[in-house]
Design a protein around this nucleic acid. Structure first.
Length: 841
DNA sequence: ATGGACCTATTTTTT
DNA sequence: ATAGGTCCAT
């Protein structure tokens, strides 16, 4: 992790001059060997790379392992290049080798390479890998990072051009929502009718499209807050400016504004960034695209050495404003661009590639790549599809399979947990696996789960630190002024807030002034005085006391740690641990400021890499990773593809879901296990589910349908659920089954819509039978609609004796539409949909 | 001003 | 189901 933001060198302080010579055969600039006094200048890398090259090996041995396409992508350094790199084709390798090549051939200094990644993880990894290639660490690449982190860097340098000071704060989502809530209330609007969170999302969406308040569509503006959407957005921006703050979107938009306002500056950056590389280009949104184009499209006399790497089949951030079109437009934006396809896969077995390739072929509008591999091994396992009764059984079965692999039962080899991952569609699915693994005592690690820096106590502590470093941070002030409780209630704070706004000064300053007057009651005045005094103290210590010590002092003296020590709740000790962990993690940074910056951009905390553990994560956060064995649970209609993606995104939403499935499968190197369940509990209610249409789209030749576990199904006859019966067939994916799941889903959906929730009003609902599936209700739009045809033509009555497949026998004690409240003999009171019980015999 | 009871929305994915 | 927020009573 980099703390390179601690120092913000300005142009005239740059250690090395820009070489003026054209790249190519011109003599390279003479690299100055890293002198002892400045071990961290970027020059060391080039020098080390040279040294590596000049060793007794054949020159540039880093190129030797590349296939011809990869090599072309690495060596085509002049002019625009688009690399279409399929999953597992060595994309990261190409990028890192390309950078190493640029350095080793002395075409640019490390500080003259702009390398943009999509996630912090990717940036970190790239730094490491370049380090391996050229030897040593990569401190010398100041412009390798995410769009956002590079945006911050630019903005810190030129903040005044957009009306900010260089010490602006970066607000996270939580801050933004609180701020917007204040604005909504200030407008006299009902903040329940117009949720701040929703508006924050809208602003985010606009900013992703690079739309300022003046630019947003009229419809969008009217849709929120009684037509005040535009005003509210403008008010928000104004407020950010007075707070000297930015949100995430601003980190992209402000640099764009800066470049547009000051063409000379842009020109300087054109000269500076001799090589531009962009990873995951398919995930760039409009704002990022504009940002990039400003930097990469140059006047005729400046070379356009831009290289974008991406895979349209792995574009999975459309919901967040990513435009796959950017990748398709590349050749138009950069005429003469060379397009290189990487299709040779080094990761997966032919079965995994076959399954993934067949699935993704159902998408239209692809650039069309087909992955291939030379690897042929008859022992390679096909992709396995498994059915389970419910998510609990799913978790149990996955756990068993993991233990089997761990013990080596399966193939005589013991597999490390680190080589296995469970990739879920939605994070709520993780819980069941965690529960199960805790029971089994199986190590697991959740990646991208609830984040360390989003925890309450961490955010509180951070607010203290922020306010010390940045006294104008009103959001931080409001967060902690009465935490721990100091008797400063709503009334006092609102009064303070209003008078600060009226005089246009930060709240902390307003407070300092107010305690000199008699405006407040003595009690509040004393409390506020103490707060003001404390912050004055801490601020003076900022320069003199080491930042980790100061952090501890702040938490002690403010009474914050005491607050948790006195808290008797179960979480309190954990929170204190987290605070300690927070202080510990500050040690890696030079200053409190540097630490705060890091946290606002990198919300992840470090994971323990040494532990052998199964990874659990969402499909989204799995992109770019690979595992020997991958488990993909929850392949059910409504969950995957997700209902919401279907509702909101229509066809393109479905295609994005399919790409997500593709990403999931292609994470696997050797083994891929897909699961679906017949019943899932959603919002506390049991619902039956249908297998995902994506299962129908897998090729029979590369897929094995595992036998349904006998345990849960035994004795229930035809009630085994839709999926089971379908997959009992010898050839589940054959063409005579060409009524794919989704067609039925569509048909069922429209039928359900037509019958207008008739089941609730009590009259009989026509059953849409689907063959072998049995007399079971179905899930449509998150509701169970239809009911059994034959033996129970009417609703249950209170007092009925009923049987439930999971909970056993019980008595109906309440009815509410199609939801029954049942007192089960063993399981206690549960609320269940009526399609799940039958009259006890 | 604090604490408890009740009500509600939540559950896609993230820089 | 559960957590988080709101409202009301003390």
């Amino acid at each position: 992790m980099s703390n390179s933001f601690d120092d913000i060198p300005f142009f005239d302080e740059e250690p090395e001059p820009a070489p003026r010579k054209q790249p190519g055969n011109a003599a390279p600039p003479a690299p100055v060997a890293g002198s002892g006094g400045a071990p961290n200048t970027g020059l060391g890398i080039a020098a080390r790379a040279m040294a590596a090259r000049d060793q007794n090996r054949p020159q540039m041995d880093y190129l030797s392992g590349l296939n011809p396409e990869q090599r072309e992508a690495v060596e085509t350094l002049d002019g625009p290049v688009l690399v279409l790199a399929g999953a597992g084709t060595g994309k990261t390798r190409v990028l890192t080798t390309r950078i190493a090549h640029i350095l080793a051939t002395n075409r640019a200094y490390p500080s003259q390479i702009l390398a943009v990644t999509f996630t912090n993880k990717a940036a970190r990894e790239m730094k490491e890998r370049i380090g391996v290639l050229v030897g040593g660490a990569v401190e010398g690449m100041p412009w390798l990072g995410t769009f956002h982190s590079i945006g911050v860097k630019l903005l810190r340098r030129h903040a005044e051009i957009v009306g900010l000071r260089s010490d602006f704060t970066i607000l996270d989502t939580d801050d933004v929502v609180r701020l917007i809530k204040q604005l909504i209330q200030a407008e006299g609007l009902d903040d329940k009718r117009w949720p701040a969170k929703q508006f924050a999302g809208m602003i985010d969406g606009w900013k992703n499209k690079a739309l300022l308040p003046a630019d947003i569509p009229e419809g969008d503006a009217r849709a929120f807050a009684n037509g005040k959407g535009r005003e509210l957005y403008a008010a928000y921006q104004a407020r950010l400016r007075t707070l000297n703050a930015c949100d995430f979107g601003d980190l992209l938009l402000h640099p764009i504004a800066i470049f547009r306002k000051t063409p000379d500056l842009l020109k300087e950056y054109h000269q500076r960034f001799r090589y531009i590389l962009v990873d995951e280009y398919q995930d760039t949104n409009t704002a990022q695209y504009m940002w990039l184009r400003l930097l990469a499209q140059r006047p005729k006399d400046v070379p356009q050495n831009v290289c974008c790497v991406g895979d349209d089949d792995q574009s999975i951030y459309g919901w967040r404003g990513a435009e796959v079109d950017n990748i398709l437009r590349f050749e138009k934006d950069f005429p003469g661009a060379k397009v290189i396809k990487l299709e040779r896969n080094y990761r997966s077995t032919e079965h995994i590639l076959g399954a993934a390739g067949h699935l993704i072929a159902h998408n239209e509008g692809r650039l069309g790549k087909t992955l291939f591999t030379d690897r042929v091994d008859p022992d390679d396992e096909k992709v396995q599809v498994h059915a389970a009764w419910d998510s609990e059984e799913e978790a149990r079965a996955v756990g068993e399979e993991i233990e089997r692999l761990q013990r080596g039962d399966a193939d005589g080899k013991k597999h490390a947990l680190n080589d296995m991952a469970i990739l879920v569609r939605a994070s709520f699915q993780m819980r069941e696996f965690e529960d199960r693994f805790v029971t089994l005592g199986l190590n697991y690690r959740v990646i991208g789960g609830p984040r360390f820096y989003e925890r309450l106590e961490i955010r509180d502590a951070m607010a203290y630190f922020r306010l010390v470093c940045q006294p104008a941070d009103d959001l931080a002030f409001e967060r902690i002024v009465n935490t721990p409780k100091r008797g400063l209630g709503d009334t006092t704070i609102r009064y303070l807030h209003d008078s600060a706004r009226a005089r246009d000064v930060p709240m902390l300053q307003a407070a300092a002034e107010m305690v000199e007057t008699d405006e407040l009651k003595p009690k509040a005045r004393k409390a506020l005085f103490d707060v003001v005094q404390s912050f004055r103290n801490w601020q003076t210590r900022l320069e003199s006391v080491p930042h980790t010590e100061l952090a501890e002092q702040i938490l002690e003296e403010s009474g914050y740690t005491d607050m948790w020590k006195n808290d008797k709740s179960a979480e309190a000790p954990g929170r204190l641990d987290n605070l300690k962990e927070l202080i510990r993690s500050m040690e890696a940074f030079e200053s409190m400021r540097g630490f705060l910056e890091h946290v606002s951009l990198v919300m992840d905390a470090e994971q323990n890499e040494n532990l052998d553990a199964v990874s659990i994560m969402t499909l989204h956060s799995a992109k770019g990773l690979e595992f020997d064995t991958v488990f993909l649970p929850g392949w059910e209609e409504g969950l995957f593809p997700h209902q919401r993606a279907l509702d909101e995104g229509g066809r393109s939403g479905l295609e994005e879901e399919r790409r997500l499935a593709y990403v999931g499968i292609t994470r696997a190197k050797r083994r891929c296990h897909i699961w679906f369940v017949s019943n899932r509990r959603i919002h506390g209610l049991w619902q039956s589910t249908m297998p995902s249409r994506f299962l129908d789209e897998l090729p029979a030749g590369h897929v094995d349908v595992a036998a349904a576990p006998d345990s849960s199904y035994g004795g229930y006859g035809g009630r085994g659920g839709y999926g089971q019966s379908r997959f009992d067939k010898a050839e589940p994916f054959a063409n005579n089954y060409s009524t794919p799941g989704w067609k039925r889903a569509q048909a069922n959906k429209s039928d359900a819509t037509r019958d207008n929730w008739g089941s609730r009003s009590g009259h009989a609902v026509e059953r849409i039978g689907y063959g072998e599936s049995g007399p079971r209700g179905r899930t449509i739009d998150g509701e169970l609609v239809a009911k059994s045809t034959t033996d129970t033509p009417s609703k249950f009555k209170v007092g009925d004796r009923v049987f439930h497949i999971k909970f056993g026998n019980g008595n109906v004690s309440g009815i509410e539409g199609n939801k029954l409240t049942i007192e089960f003999d063993r399981a206690g009171q549960k609320r269940v949909l009526d399609g799940f019980v039958e009259k006890a015999s």
